[in-house]
Design a binder for these strands. Structure first.
Lengths: 236, 236, 236, 236
DNA sequence: CATGAATGAGCCTTCATTCAT
DNA sequence: AATGAATGAAGGCTCATTCAT
């Protein structure tokens, strides 16, 4: 019988009589690790955490599974490493956009623009971060929640700076994340998320345009409050 | 062949000393199906789609696995049935809140209040819908995306009605879901989502309060536009 | 949610407000049993013993599974009952064809004709008997082997009568089924089997024609045909 | 997530008191595949396709199930691989027996002898091929049918060569497998099958003897034997 | 006579993980 | 640095069979 019935061994390189088939060139560890993370992000974004298999990832980066385990430890650690790397990249990208001296509104706009730009360019990273990571069990979710908190905290600071007296500081004894500013920041980040997904679904547009769309909603709403505008039910 | 193939619980009819396995009582199909869906929602929200096992779900509703399969077909179909039922419930709850005659802003506020109320009351349903369902493969994602579209479309209509001239109607030939109103609706729904999660994380508050928080951001932002306000970069 | 998601209940009869939906008319036991056997033969011939499910069979004869078990006992017994009934029919059909007074060759020819006629008319019965039954475990195989032995014994008798001295009687002390006559009978039955399957595969032809084909081989032999010998019914 | 997900044999490295599970030694793939096929043929011939379990087969070749699946794909593919290998062996064995130059009758006799020899030596292979394989669903049946066709075609050619004018060539427009030669070949193969089974059942005898028995029937015919004709090898 | 509801048991399959080379 | 060979454990699904009505 033909013994290649089930080609588990993908002898990518052709028949090489003399040399022992150097399937993967010797590559220094740091670089290999990045290749592995690249492959993992690709696969995780494509299939989701659970549906992705280590075999698939190993094949995607043309490395044997023992190497994966040697360098990254376990599937869960691998996923966490992906999350961390991509979250860091996102935070750096957004952080670089903000120039400290600027007016708060402009700073927010630039941050949003950077965010939408990042999502457009790193589609897979964002999918892993925002679609897949949320459905996980505790350890991984905490990782991504931490990244999200970092972003949200920055926005919260902006909001508070922008809207001074209109958004009251947390009352003494109140959990800091329960104040109005925190809520506003949550809403802004959530809206940005949704718009990022929307752009991915409906086709690309310049990040500035998406940022403008969002600013139109949230900023024009915030500024009048500086002048004392408040929302009330009609009955009040 | 072995004639003792199925030597099931023969002693079950014997002395009833310590309640020898409480065989599920006869329950009509329609009712059992609901129990199964209840249990499934609970388990899926707790563990996520992949990590949840049919054994776990069967145990949760005190029924054997074959019944699950007989009534609901497969794990994926079961999940889809959960999604459908919960999405329908959510849509009904939000839909009932809107009284057609009302001013658009008030209608939006009521809808949001109903939404936050639903999430507070059906915590698990919402977790399944918004955390777990997004990370799935095509068939399930489409189901939940359809529900989300339904909600978003309602909001889009409201937005368009509310903000008449400030939000231009889609230009002829433009895909309807690419217009500014659609973007605004996406942002609102995303913000509501995020706030719902935030409330779940940080502890309960009256739905009216959460709705007010969100209206403060998005509505006070929309109204000034009726008077011609527009967002511009400072440089413009 | 629609509770008919998985229509296990096939309410064959339409909505019947008053009467309690008489899904299966009261039918006396003997008749029901025949219907069940009919259905079982159909399903077994279609799917094979193992692949066939009791659900399938129950549905095929529009009866609930408990009835099947009440009347026929178990899957294995049901299969055995099928085998027995069909084998009996076959033996009767072939037996009726032989008129005792005739010359052995003619008797063989008539038996073969009857056999090919039976297979053509009871396609499914034959498939169950000769394709499915052989692959079973002990108890069932014995049933069909017994039937086959019955047929083979008759042929052996014919052969011995026909070929008196040419086929020596079993030597004393020799197992009776080891003699030349037994071997010849086995060959004939095997050849008939194969031809029956061949006709089923390649399309029908008159049973007399198939019988003639076989008689040409076993009665005349191949070598004499080289010299012009032909098989003809005695009347020709 | 539980980090003890795979707490496999940790104590395996400990004291080796009583041979703590003989982990299968490293064996190259090609060899392992053959071992697996050997085991599978044994098990399939013993229990039949459906009744055989992959656990049983894995145990029979002292390998874990995952290896079975890695190398052979699935139960069905494994069965098909068995069929293919054994059929090839049979065809080779029979093919080698025929020396082209010989007279047709002698060639047939040698082929039959080889066939009965093969069956005697590879009892299990033959059981799988001829008892089990016929009761399967389409994909597998086609595999074995193809092998059978190959054998039958060879016999058909012999028959046609042997019996020149006595067996008319297919009439124009007639499907080639419907001619008399094809029918004769079917009968011969069927008879050989039956005799092989008979020998297996009743106890061994030299393959030459069984071949002689069959040649007596098909080559000489029954009627001529009434008048004293006997089959002899040409050399006798 | 007749059936909807229910289940224990087992099978095929796959996955994360590791050892020996 | 790198990998082919190997496995324990578990998960989804189905089946023959039986109560309770």
């Amino acid at each position: 019988m033909r013994s290649d019935a089930h080609p588990a061994a993908k002898s990518a390189t052709g028949a090489r009589a003399t040399a022992p088939a150097p399937r993967a060139k010797r590559v220094p560890r740091a670089q290999r690790e990045q290749q592995m993370l690249d492959a993992a992000v690709r696969v995780f974004s494509r299939s989701g955490y659970h549906a992705a298999s280590m075999d698939e990832i190993a094949e995607e980066c043309a490395v044997s599974k023992p190497m994966l385990y040697l360098y990254l430890g376990s599937k869960e650690e691998l996923f966490a490493a992906c999350i961390r790397r991509e979250a860091d990249r996102l935070i750096v990208a957004v952080g670089q956009a903000a120039e400290p001296g600027l007016e708060a509104g402009e700073q927010l706009r630039r941050g949003l623009t950077a965010f939408f730009g990042f999502v457009a360019e790193h589609r897979e990273s964002w999918i892993v971060l925002y679609q897949q990571a949320r459905a996980q069990g505790e350890p991984v979710v905490e990782e991504v929640a931490a990244a999200r908190r970092q972003v949200t905290a920055a926005v919260t600071a902006l909001v508070r700076r922008a809207a001074l007296d209109s958004v009251p500081p947390p009352r003494p004894g109140e959990r800091p994340d329960r104040g109005e500013a925190a809520a506003v920041a949550q809403a802004i980040v959530g809206a940005a998320d949704a718009l990022a997904g929307w752009v991915l679904d409906t086709g690309p547009e310049p990040p500035e345009e998406t940022a403008r769309r969002l600013m139109s909603v949230i900023w024009i709403g915030l500024e009048p409050r500086l002048h004392g505008a408040r929302y009330r039910k009609p009955s009040e």
